[in-house]
């Protein structure tokens, strides 16, 4: 695809692990690499930066093959998880370091660095040592330092994970603005789905070294394709065969049947949110089509709601109010009736 800014196939093999993925990004596009620990996200990022050799594959950046280039010659900027600001340099010297290394003369490098610091709102902290900066400020210096080399590919490794929850909100929206201004491709590695949804134009989900899903945040959130993604976005997800609005999950004794909103054919995914599930002690009258008798597996508090995990012919999560739980008067191990309206059940081709 000639419109891509970044096109790459990355293969990294090491004992017990293999990363094999394709990744592309348009100019100005922010792609989040989302996945559980050990999925290979950081490996992919390090391979793009040239900090890790590729077993196979290649990296095309704006039509140029940079696969064989050493790290210091790649037109990249990288923001590390704990920023890795040089402790013996001021904020300004940290930001000027890149331009200096790339041949800008000292005075101009310092002037540019001052501009980049001002752009991230830290014009007053040019002389501060990293140790004197707050976490949020250090994150912005790290971003300014990466942008100051005018990279054509920006790599961010868990850019917000070292921040406390409160700072993260502010820094996240600032980061989003700076990413919007950046005209090259940007890859953000994260394990936080919310971070991926807010920061990225597109989400690529990595599990066990391969891409399992790729789409806009909205697509991924609505139509997860693996258990991991479904859990991330808080949906109950099943795979089965559809005949009209009826979907058969599994076969044999462990099988179940789910009624969906829209008719489908062949292999489909079905998904519904936990808050669409209602729980009863007695079999509800009128019996909606999606009614199952399941065993309560566990109960946990989730914000001002209660999450009830059930297992049986179907494994599912229900989200109910504490009042509803009190009315239910049930403990793990007991059996309950779970109901979901067919209008709440989404189905899409697998």
């Amino acid at each position: 695809m000639s419109t891509d800014s970044l096109y790459t196939r990355l293969v990294v093999s090491r004992p017990g692990f293999r990363l094999d993925m394709e990744l592309s990004a348009a100019p100005g596009e922010v792609v989040a690499l989302l996945g559980p620990n050990g999925a290979g996200k950081s490996t992919a990022l390090r391979a793009l930066a040239g900090l890790l050799p590729l077993t196979r594959g290649r990296i095309l950046l704006e039509g140029r093959d940079i696969t064989a280039l050493p790290t210091e010659s790649r037109p990249i900027g990288m923001v590390f998880q704990d920023y890795l600001l040089f402790a013996h340099m001021s904020a300004l010297e940290n930001v000027a370091f890149g331009p200096r290394c790339r041949g800008t003369d000292k005075r101009r490098a310092r002037r540019e660095a001052a501009e980049f610091l001002a752009r991230v709102g830290l014009g007053d902290h040019a002389r501060s040592r990293p140790a004197a900066l707050s976490g949020g400020q250090a994150q912005r210096v790290a971003l300014a330092r990466a942008l100051a080399v005018r990279p054509r590919l920006l790599l961010l490794d868990e850019p917000l994970s070292a921040l406390d929850a409160h700072t993260r909100l502010t820094v996240r929206s600032q980061l989003r603005r700076h990413l919007d201004d950046f005209d090259g491709a940007a890859i953000v590695v994260t394990h936080d789905p919310l971070e991926a949804m807010v920061l990225a134009d597109r989400v690529t989900i990595l599990e066990h070294g391969t891409v399992v899903q790729n789409g806009t945040p909205a697509e991924v959130a609505q139509h997860p394709r693996t258990e991991y993604v479904a859990r991330l976005v808080g949906l109950n997800l099943y795979r089965g065969r559809a005949r009209g609005t009826t979907v058969d999950i599994g076969s044999g004794p462990g099988s179940a049947r789910i009624a969906a909103r829209e008719p489908g054919r062949g292999e489909v995914f079905v998904a519904f949110p936990p808050r669409a599930v209602a729980l009863y002690r007695e079999r509800p009258t009128g019996s909606p089509r999606n009614t199952w008798r399941l065993t309560i597996d566990g109960i946990e508090r989730l914000g001002d709601q209660v999450r009830v995990h059930l297992d049986g012919e179907l494994a599912l999560s229900a989200e109910i109010t504490p009042a509803a739980l009190a009315e239910l008067r049930m403990e793990p191990g007991e059996k309950a009736w779970a109901c979901v309206k067919a209008t709440e059940v989404d189905s899409y081709p697998a």
Binding site: E72, S73, G77, F86, G98, C101
Partner: peptide
């Protein structure tokens, strides 16, 4: 990893040694 950070900023090994590792 500080040396890796310096490399992503375009520093050669000699520069990394002098300006990052040695300090």
């Amino acid at each position: 990893r500080y040396e890796e950070a310096a490399a992503t900023l375009g520093a050669s090994r000699a520069v990394i040694f002098r300006r990052v590792t040695l300090p």
